[in-house]
Design a protein around this nucleic acid. Structure first.
Length: 292
DNA sequence: CATGCCCCCTGCACGC
DNA sequence: TGCGTGCAGGGGGCAT
């Protein structure tokens, strides 16, 4: 389930092979992912150079020399695979890669000779091609909240976003309009690190007498911490893998609460056990002892 | 507007 | 061993 850290790791892996390279050929192997590919998708990409590969929340944004913008989303199961030019490949390519080509939906051949393949079993991912003009008033991207790793995102910003919100902290942090890029896993992790209950009402983070409460400070810091840590881990893992992986949950033992129902809380001095509840139809993992 | 819920889809962990 | 069932979740859309 790629969230911000995994998408950022994918961006960094793709950047050297995509940026400043042209699309030599583009092949889609079905008519849609989450929604249909736009008209003339391949034709509009071919011959264009990627001038920048950016990330916003969980979205990948490739700016093209034509002025168009290629928007990519990994959904829940999307990943990219980078294959070197044919004559550079070793004879034995069996083994390490997710060899199932059944879900290879898009194949980019770049002017550098590399092939970039988008694989997505569940097809919750998407690709869209829009003009730069459309990008500036894109409903979803335009509505995204701040980037949590930017300096501009701090306790005061978070507190302001929480002001007046009657919903839970879990639902609030999962809302991409509040802060961009968090998903189920890192919301759980950040709340645990900040010692805040996922059930707590969001408005309790709001400023008091103009200053952010301690809880808001802890939460903003915890969000940054868990994301930075996860990015480092994703990058480290990538080094040893052929696939540009995007499945956070496939890393064993990397979470302190997520998917640890019934296990001991890992906070030093806490003897709680991790509980699983359902909020907005999704699993929440937390420690009822140290998270208040 | 805010909020909650359903749905899309497939792989996988279960239970029998 | 094989089959059925239910669950996982990002985000868009819709009902309340």
């Amino acid at each position: 389930m790629p969230e911000l850290p995994e998408v950022e790791a994918v961006r960094r892996a793709l950047q050297p092979v995509m940026q400043d390279a042209r699309f030599t050929s583009v092949m889609t192997r079905r008519a849609d992912l989450r929604f249909p590919f736009p008209d003339r998708f391949a034709a509009r990409l071919e011959g264009q150079m990627v001038t920048r590969l950016e990330r916003r929340g969980k979205h990948l944004i490739a700016r093209l020399s034509s002025g168009d913008v290629l928007l990519m989303h990994l959904g829940m199961s999307g990943s990219f695979r980078v294959d070197p030019p044919l004559d550079d490949r070793s004879a034995d390519t069996s083994g390490d890669r997710a060899a199932d080509g059944r879900h290879d939906h898009v194949i980019f051949r770049m002017s550098s000779g590399v092939t970039i393949t988008f694989n997505d079993p569940r097809r919750f991912g998407s690709m869209d091609l829009i003009s730069g003009e459309q990008l500036s008033r894109h409903a979803t991207l335009g509505g995204l909240g701040p980037e949590p790793l930017d300096d501009a995102f701090d306790a005061a910003v978070l507190a302001r976003a929480c002001a007046g919100k009657k919903t839970s902290l879990k639902a609030t942090l999962s809302d991409q309009r509040v802060v961009a890029g968090l998903g189920n896993i890192y919301v759980c992790e950040a709340l645990h690190r900040a010692r805040l209950s996922p059930k707590r009402r969001a408005w309790t983070m709001a400023t008091r007498a103009g200053a952010p409460r301690d809880a808001a400070r802890r939460l903003a810091a915890a969000i940054k911490h868990v994301l930075n840590e996860a990015i480092a881990r994703s990058l480290a893992w990538q080094q040893g893998a052929t696939a540009v992986a995007a499945d956070a949950a496939s890393f064993p033992n990397r979470f302190r609460v997520y998917d640890r129902e019934g296990a001991r809380c890992l906070r030093k001095g806490c003897d709680g056990r991790i509980r699983r509840i359902v909020q907005s139809g999704r699993s929440t993992f937390y420690c009822p002892v140290c998270q208040r």
